[in-house]
Simulated scan of single mutants.
Amino acid sequence: MTAVALPQQAVGPTFSPAKMLHARNKTVEAVQLIAKQIRPGMNERQAKDLAKATLEQMGMERIWHGIIVRFGHTTQKTFNQRIDPDNVLGENDIFFIDLGVVWDGHEGDAGDTFVVGHDTQMQDCAMAARQLWQTVRDKWLQDGCAGSELYQYAAKQAEAMGWQLNLEIKGHRVSDFPHAIYQAGNLGDFAACPDTGLWILEIQIRHPTLPYGAFYEDLLIRETTSAEA
């Protein structure tokens, strides 16, 4: 990527769009691989340890944000709240995984929600987070909206779908490691249209009456993403 207009979208001298996409793809792969290994009866601490071991086997460089695995009622928690290490996944339950991993000097960040058992409302919740993410991404592609407009739109769409959007979760920058030196702030507070390959769109929703929610995040890019598969 060449020079960008806003300091919030600055990148380092080693930044590569191809490496950024590779980091994204490897992190999405890791989320799916870890999810396949999680079973009812496992607690959040065991799931986090499993995730770390899987990432090490995959050859990660490092973790750039803490591994988050949430089961059942803790799927309502926000990013900065601790996991509940003794919280056990039930036979009919919902969980999500959120990973921030460095691959080849670039930050991957991906998250998705999964259901064990046959609870159709939980299945609908997990699917709704993915669908809402795609709807908001389509808005970005078609209209070139500012980050703040995207989250206003997301809240309205979530309500229309029968879910509650957690507006404490507003997305963020990624880049060549470490992106934090740019002090970019949240996507939901960004006053310009986010550039491709630099921002994570995060969607976290809650069931309107039951004690659980769902989470989905991915890199905003103009190429085809897993959400469209």
Rank of each mutant, 00 (worst) to 15 (best):
A155W: 05
T225Q: 11
H207S: 04
A184M: 07
D176P: 04
R173W: 01
Q152L: 13
W163K: 02
G213F: 06
A154F: 00
D176E: 15
D176T: 09
D218S: 12
D189F: 11
G213W: 05
A191M: 14
I205H: 09
A155S: 13
D176W: 06
S148P: 05
L150Y: 05
K139F: 08
A160F: 08
K170L: 15
P194F: 07
G197K: 01
P211G: 08
H179K: 06
F215E: 05
G188S: 11
Y182S: 12
C193Y: 01
R206G: 09
E168I: 03
C145A: 15
L198C: 12
F215G: 00
G144P: 11
A154V: 02
Q164M: 10
A154I: 02
Q157D: 06
E223G: 08
L150M: 15
L187C: 04
E223Y: 02
G171H: 00
N166W: 00
A214H: 02
Y151N: 01
K170Q: 15
D218M: 03
G144M: 10
I169H: 01
G188Q: 09
P178Q: 10
I221A: 10
D143H: 10
E168M: 09
A160Y: 06
T209N: 09
R222P: 00
W163H: 01
F190D: 03
D195W: 03
A184W: 00
E159V: 07
A214G: 04
N166Q: 02
N166F: 01
R222D: 13
T209P: 01
M161W: 03
M161D: 05
C145T: 07
A160R: 15
Q204I: 04
Q183H: 14
A158K: 00
G213E: 07
E159N: 10
Q164E: 12
L187R: 03
L201F: 06
F215N: 09
W199G: 12
D195M: 08
W163S: 02
I203A: 04
L198I: 13
I200K: 01
A191H: 13
L167V: 05
H207L: 08
G213N: 08
